[in-house]
Design a protein around this nucleic acid. Structure first.
Length: 723
DNA sequence: AGCACGCCGACT
DNA sequence: GTCGGCGTGCTC
């Protein structure tokens, strides 16, 4: 009789012991189903202890050990244990997050959909040589001959992929084995000198953990560097892990990667995947059959026995930080993992996070630069428009209007960038002062004139636009401020001949809407685009030569110390949309603070100067990365309950905190009320990460032991992004 | 987290 | 008399 120790997804930092007739060392890392309470739960065997702390008579036998799938290896268990420790969450909860649900439930694994390598068989070569009558199968054969060895899934995607089954039935195309996954498709682009230097720097480094920061301006070809590095790792028989910030970016990248490495097994992992596909992908990675794993933050937990390289694209992106449950940073976990496995990691961005940039300056990371745009186009010219003495027309300056007019006359596209959805951020009554407040949040309801609704952008509350002031009956209530819809409407009036297209979360709600808009833009079916940050990311618009930025000043004085960093990143990214290919681009930034250092740096495209000044401000103010933070947040239906809990937690912290750990005041959050709950927070800070960690560990243990009203929720956020 | 047990208020 | 509120405690 063997004792097995199981990590289960319950919110208490405990492991549970069970008995098993036949468990052996081989079963450590395997998924199990066990009786729990009066029900059943599933978890992972993490140890086979000789004795249990609980009375042997109380141990129940495990119900089922999943032995169809390879066990999770020791290094994976170490990885999740690290995440549990660092973010102060129970191991079982971290495991539940890291494993695909179907796998953890120890379900039977679906038949592995194999994706065999295909090549032309002798019959296929003969058919080509015979000069037969042209058919789809024959055209496909020509495409396959050009491609070389190829995965079936990729072959299906070829222009005549529909004829694949036919070609295989005739024996023209046959499965082959043993082609190197690094086999590259024909037609790789030439590298620029900078790209070559970056690839060489990483490749000539001796094997082992090296963190690299690839700082490459928009359009400098970072992806090509990733692909070359991946090719080297694949050729060495290693697996590559590549992280991207968003689900929306995976399909494009996946097809590009799969197209480049037709013989490689490329697996993508993200939360949008069906359960079966996610389990299958994870198992392929775990069993070493996947060569390249591509995915969003949760794919940092893919088990990979032959891991040789980690790539993190857009490493500054906030979506690498999970904002609920286990609040982990996939980028930080990836760096830990690279160190653990002794492999290089490349963090890439056009606008690196100040944290990573600081690591380069402190020589903890190695820097790689791509300063030139690969496609022979230069960086856009950035100009500030001082709006202090201008008469604006619905927020649009004369200079911006005439610049748009010029683009229109030349048949080029313009983008007006404004990070505010809706028609106007608030509706208000000039006679009695009523404003459209959300009943559930401390926020205003936004006017959506497109469908005549008032909406809360925080809780989704939605009602009709009233015809008169609900308090005083005044008929003349007015929308104040401007959002994308209002700008869109005004542009349509100013340029009646132009096709104006608004691109925001409202107009591009579904994937297909978003894709059809991208196609419209690419086909030149729009002249003026009005867009939010959706427009800033990851797409090329060859005819776009003007970006006008309005309403950016608000972020200059925001309370969050990271707001300027985000603004600068956003403006650099959206500015990068202007002028690709052979048309020079221009960026016009409307501002009342044209001399603000942030805009001065933006005009010079000088990220380094911006980062330098932002970092020195942070150093002076004692903010990260010069200090380490943890945030305790509490929420309850009534603010007072949340604040009382935080005040209690604060007293506790003050009693326990060693020198060097600073406990701040408990304060209501900026958006205090959200979805009928009121929220407060308590910041803890220290100069040493280890000091903060040990203290938080002891503090949280005490805090967890307290009983609180059931209406009160609280969570801990290590390295919070928003303070 | 679930889910039991258990002890007090207002309903058929 | 019971249905049901949620405080308390446990899960190997």
């Amino acid at each position: 009789m063997q004792i097995v120790r199981v990590a289960l997804p319950v919110p208490i930092p405990q492991l549970f012991d069970y008995t098993s007739q036949d468990a052996s060392e081989e079963d450590i890392g395997r998924c199990v189903r066990v009786p729990f309470g009066r029900g059943e739960k599933s978890g992972v065997i993490v140890a086979l202890p000789a004795v249990s702390d609980v009375d042997p008579a109380r141990l129940k036998p495990v119900r089922h050990i999943q032995r169809e799938v390879s066990p999770l290896p020791a290094d994976w268990l170490e990885l999740v244990a690290f995440v549990a420790r660092y973010y102060h969450e129970p191991l079982g909860e971290v495991i539940a997050l890291a494993l695909p649900p179907g796998l953890r439930r120890a379900d039977a694994v679906s038949d592995r959909e194999s994706d065999p390598l295909l090549d032309l068989g002798p019959a296929g070569h003969a058919a080509l040589a015979a000069g037969r009558r042209v058919s789809r199968a024959l055209t496909l054969l020509q495409q396959l001959q050009a491609a070389g060895v190829i995965r079936r899934s990729i072959a299906r995607e070829l222009p005549d992929g529909a004829a694949l089954a036919d070609a295989m039935r005739r024996g023209w195309v046959v499965p082959v084995r043993g082609a190197s996954p690094a086999t590259a498709a024909a037609g790789q682009p030439e590298l620029t000198d900078e790209q070559r230097a970056a690839v060489d720097a990483v490749s000539t480094e001796p094997a082992g953990f090296v963190p690299w920061l690839l700082h490459g301006v928009t359009g400098s070809g970072k992806t090509e560097v990733y692909l070359r590095l991946a090719a080297r790792a694949l050729a060495a028989g290693q697996q590559v892990l590549m992280l991207v910030p968003e689900i929306a970016l995976t399909p494009q990248l996946e097809s590009r990667v799969a197209g480049r490495f037709p013989a490689a097994c490329v697996v993508s992992l993200h939360s949008g995947l069906a359960e079966g596909a996610r389990s299958r992908g994870f198992v392929q990675a775990l069993e070493g059959r996947a060569d390249l794993v591509l995915g969003t933050r949760l794919s940092v937990f893919a088990a990979m026995p032959r891991l040789g390289l980690i790539l993190v694209d857009e490493e500054h992106d906030a979506s690498y930080k999970q904002q609920e449950g286990v609040r982990y940073s996939a980028r930080d976990v990836a760096v830990w993992r690279a160190r653990q496995r002794g492999v290089p990691i490349v963090l890439g961005s056009a606008t690196p996070s100040l944290e990573s940039w600081h690591h380069v300056r402190a020589e903890r990371y190695r820097g790689l630069r791509l300063n030139a745009r690969a496609l022979a186009s230069t960086l856009p010219k950035v100009r500030r428009i001082d709006t202090r003495r201008l008469r604006l027309d619905e927020g649009l300056s004369p200079a911006l209007q005439s610049a748009i007019g010029e683009r229109l006359a030349r048949g080029e596209q313009s983008l007006v960038f404004l990070n505010r959805r809706g028609y106007a951020p608030v509706l208000s009554c000039p006679s009695c002062g009523w404003v459209s407040r959300c009943p559930h949040c401390s926020a205003n309801l936004v006017v959506h004139l497109a469908d005549r609704r008032l909406r809360c952008h925080h809780c989704g509350c939605d009602c009709e636009v009233p015809h008169a002031c609900p308090v005083c009956g005044n008929q003349d209530i007015q929308p104040f401020g401007r959002g994308t819809q209002r700008i869109e409407a005004r542009l349509a009036e100013l340029f009646p001949e132009a096709r104006v297209l608004r691109v925001d979360r409202d107009s591009a709600r579904t994937r297909s809407q978003w894709e059809s808009m991208l196609a419209q833009i690419a086909n030149g079916e729009a002249d003026i685009l009005v867009g939010t940050q959706m427009m800033a990311k990851g797409h090329d618009f060859p005819k776009l030569t003007l970006v006008g930025v309005i309403g950016a000043d608000a972020s200059l004085h925001a309370a969050d110390f990271r707001a300027p960093e985000r603004l600068f990143q956003q403006l650099m990214q959206v500015g990068g949309r202007a002028g690709r290919a052979h048309l020079p681009g221009e960026v016009l930034v409307q501002t009342e603070y044209p001399d603000h250092p942030l805009y001065r740096c933006l005009v010079r495209h000088d990220f380094d100067a911006f980062a330098e000044s932002a970092l020195s401000e942070r150093r002076a103010a004692g903010f990260p990365p010069f200090t380490y933070q943890a945030m305790l947040r509490a929420d309850a239906p009534v603010l007072d309950d949340a604040m009382q809990f935080l005040a209690h937690a604060r007293r506790l912290a003050q009693d326990m905190a060693p020198a060097g750990v600073r406990v701040f005041d408990a304060v209501p959050m900026r958006l205090t009320r959200l979805a009928r709950r009121e929220r407060g927070q308590l910041l803890i800070e220290a100069d040493e990460r280890a000091l903060l960690q040990t203290f938080i560990g002891r503090w949280i243990e005490v805090l967890r032991a307290q009983r609180t009203s059931r209406e009160l929720r609280w969570q801990l956020d290590i390295d919070p992004l928003e303070v």
